[in-house]
Every structure is written in structure tokens, then in C-alpha cells.
Design a protein around this nucleic acid. Sequence first.
RNA 1: GAGCCAUUAGCUCAGCAGGUAGAGCACCGGACUUUUAAUCCGGGUGUCCGGGGUUCGAAUCCCCGAUGGCUCACCA
Length: 494
Amino acid sequence: MGEGAAEGVEELNDQMLIRRQKLDEWRSEGIEPFGQRYDRTHTAEEIRSQFDALEGQTVSIAGRIIAKRGHGKASFADLLDGSGTIQLFIKVNTVGEKLYKQYQRLDLGDIIGVQGTVFRTRMGEISVEIQEFCMLSKALRPLPEKWHGLKDVDLRYRMRYLDLIANPEVKEVFITRSKIIQGIRDFLLARGYLEVETPMLNVIPGGANARPFITHHNALDMDLYMRIAPELYLKRLLVGGFEKVFEIGKNFRNEGISTKHNPEYTMVELYEAYGDADTMMALTEELFAHLAVLVKGTTQVEFQGQIIDLAPPWPRLPMLEAIKQYAGIDLEGVSDEEAVKLAKERGVELPPGAGKAQVINELFDEFVEPELTGPVFITEHPVEISPLAKRKPDKPSVTDRFEPFIVGWEMANGFSELNDPIDQKERFRQQMEQRQAGDDEAHMMDEDYIVALEHGMPPAGGLGIGIDRLVMLLTDSPSIRDVLLFPHMRPKAD
RNA sequence: GAGCCAUUAGCUCAGCAGGUAGAGCACCGGACUUUUAAUCCGGGUGUCCGGGGUUCGAAUCCCCGAUGGCUCACCA
């Protein structure tokens, strides 16, 4: 991308040519259209909110011209800055012929600095009457259409800056995203958590069942993996004596792209020594409700027409009970063979060699998950699909794990952390078997992590929350691309 | 990865019983000293996504490809 333009291969359309001509006109008058620092006294929003104090005063503002309305010897324009828009007014007998002519040369999209007087027009619009203005940046390409905005989703994602200019509501989503992430950080810091950073380049990718991206380190001449989760590093920190840690950052998973999946996505993972799954469920409820109030002012959240109340406490539903309830199949005490038979009777496809754990997983995904408007905690996942979670003391075939579901999506994942190194090694061994059987998402063996556990890790609760989905929920965005500034796109080949 | 749909001017979209393209905004020229989707007069600025094919003739029909959207599959 950009090669063509850089080499001047790209053809200029009439509007681009005219804007380049205007660039030359500015320069022929000794004015550099790509200007310097500009000291503003106010933003557009401040002028509007502080109008009573500012009326008749001289202010300096800066921004992008997004509309012009000419009336011969007087003109109006709309100036957009980071706070919003403000109307500009200019009269030839105030500024003189020369400046007025220069004003008329301005194109939509140009960025200017304005010194002028605050006043209200006959129609009641708070405005700034230009006394002086200067060029800060010349726009060499036209903006998208003012009324319909930029609709082409391909262009919106590829040229997000235009989307942000043309569709102001898009900005709001990303402001909310920032508030949510800051809200999570504040919430955890206030509870004594320490924010840490762990490697994104991994020798052994762990902490999740997923296919990783592979990259290469030249000096070491070795392949490295982009992390699929920070979990195993964060738990090493529990061994080291940090008792409450969290990390906010990207995970990378080499899997499909959809309205709910982007190859790189943002997670918060946190671990609390001496806690357990119950500690984490309580924290999850509180955090979600807190964030909803922070960005919406209420725990009642509307998503695509349905109202979800995030106020704690959320119901807890063991996986087998959920399957009984939604699929009408009771797997309690059922053998592997019987479980597989029951699933096949319901038309569920299973990989060869699947056992009861896979049956539970498949039945849950197919019959239960879409029904979970929630919020609800699904608990007691089979040990086979939870290789890093502690077993329930009274029920060793399942783990002390939970996943909150809202609007049918898995929003997070948490459990009491497995701190028995011998059990952990055995779990890894089973994962390796699955790997050898062709499951390339099964966990890899991490001997170094076992060694860490052998030094003693306190019992702990752990939690990972998919921040993108959380932002989707709280901004009523149906696609993950709407909450990512630059979602992954194929390069445009032409 | 599979299916369906889309791609026409800078932007938003018409045009698709096959006769080489139109509108609004933007842009260009002109008028206009309080407009706000300003208005009025004049001007269409185009690789109809790309490449083949059918046809006297293709934006339109067929095939291949590119990109995007949705659905499904895998996952969070």
C-alpha cells in the first residue's frame, strides 16, 4: 500500500488537481499551507458552553473546515475540532479584500487557525467572526459527503480517519472504549492489584487452547510464537510473591475472523492469591456492573433491542444442568459411550475418539450458548477441557471454573487455579496426547511452568475478560470491527 | 475454509426487458453582506472492481479472480 502513490503512479482526479493548484497559490503568496504550532485559547465546545462570558471577546481556535456557505461579501463556515463544531463568520469589510479572497480559496478539509470575535448570529447560532486566520494544513483530497457520511464499510475500516471525521458517533464508541479500559484499570488498582507486562513473544505459547502465530527471531535464528494468553507468566508471578496482578493487552490467535473474532484482541487477565473461582465471580459481577454505570449511568444495558441487567448477583448454572435444561439431555453419571450415543441421536457431529467432555462441550455450544441472554455464570466445566483449572474437591471430574454469558457470548473465563504441579503435568501430558492425535489447539507441554509450580504457588483465583466483546456490549455494537479502530483487513490488491 | 449478496463520479446512490451512463452533495465558473443540508444560474468531472466470454452491441447476460458484508464452521 502506498507504493503507487509514492511513485506518483496514481492518477489525480480533478478535485485533487485543483487542491494542488491551490497549494501552489498559497505558496506563491509566501504562505506555507502546512503550518506550524498554533496556540489556541478555546475549543469549539468551550466557546459554546462559556458563551455568556466570551461574547464580544477575541478567541483563538483551530480545526478543520467541514462546511462553507458563501454569500458574496460575507460567508459562513463550520469548523470542526476535537470538541465539536463551531460556526465561523467572515465579512469582507472587516477583514479586507485580500484576506477574504484567501478565505474563499479554502477547501473543505483544510485545517486552519482562527482569531476572531465571539458573537451570536441573528438566527441564534454562537459563532466566531474571523479577524485573522492562518493555514495549518492543506487537504489535498476531498472529504466524504457531508449529509450521508461515509457508509462504505470497507472504506470506513480501511480509512478510519475519514470515518471518524464523517461519522461523529463513531468517535463516541472509541471514547467509551477508552473509558472502559481506564475503568477496569482503576477498579483493579483500587483493590490493590499490580499492573504488569509479560512477554508477547513466547517460546511456548500457553494459557489457552488456540493456534498461535509464528514469527522469527533473526539473531537467535529461532521461531517464536505470539502469545495466545499471558496466563502462565502471570501465575509465575504468584509463585514469586506478587499476590494480586493484572495485565491488559493483546492476545494473538491464528484463527477465523468473524463479527466476534479478530486475530489480535484485547484481554484483561488477573490473578488473586488465596482467592478462588467464587472470589472471581464476585469480582466479575461487580466489575461489569461498575463499568455499565460508568459508561451508561445504569446497570441496565440495551444490546440490539434487548435489555440486560448487569446488577449483581448473577445466577450460577453448572454446565450439566444447563445442558439438561436447554438441550433436554441428562449426562449426569453417563458413560463416554452413552454420552456419544446421545449426542449423535441429536445430530451433533463429534471428532473421532470424542469422549464425554467433548460431548458436553459440543452440546453446550450448540444448544445452550445461544440461549444464554444472561448474565449467568456457567460453572463446573469438565476437567478435560480445562487443563489449567483446579478440580472441584467434592467432584474431581469437573473443575472449579466459570464462564459468564451475556447475549449468548462468552464474556470471560475464570477458575480456581491449579497449583498441584503433579496434576498439572498430567494434564499437560493428556493435552500432548490430544495434540499428537491431531488437535493442534491442544496445550503444549511447558516444563518450565511445572518447575515454577513445584516451588509452590498459593491457591488463587484467576479471570480473563475479552475487552472487545465487553465494549461491544456496552456500546451496542453488533460487530467487533465497530470497536476496533483498525480491524484486520485483507490488503487491497488491484 | 463453504454459501448468499454487494462493488457505477471524490462521497451517497439510481440505471440491470442488452443500445457504451444519471441524480444529490462535493468540485469548476457566475450572482448574493446573518446562513446553517444556504439559495439562484451555468458546467458531468467516469477503468460502471479486474480479466475473459456470449453478442452487431455488455454497467446490464455467462465464467474466472479481487475486496467487502452477512450466514455457517473454528475460536474468545
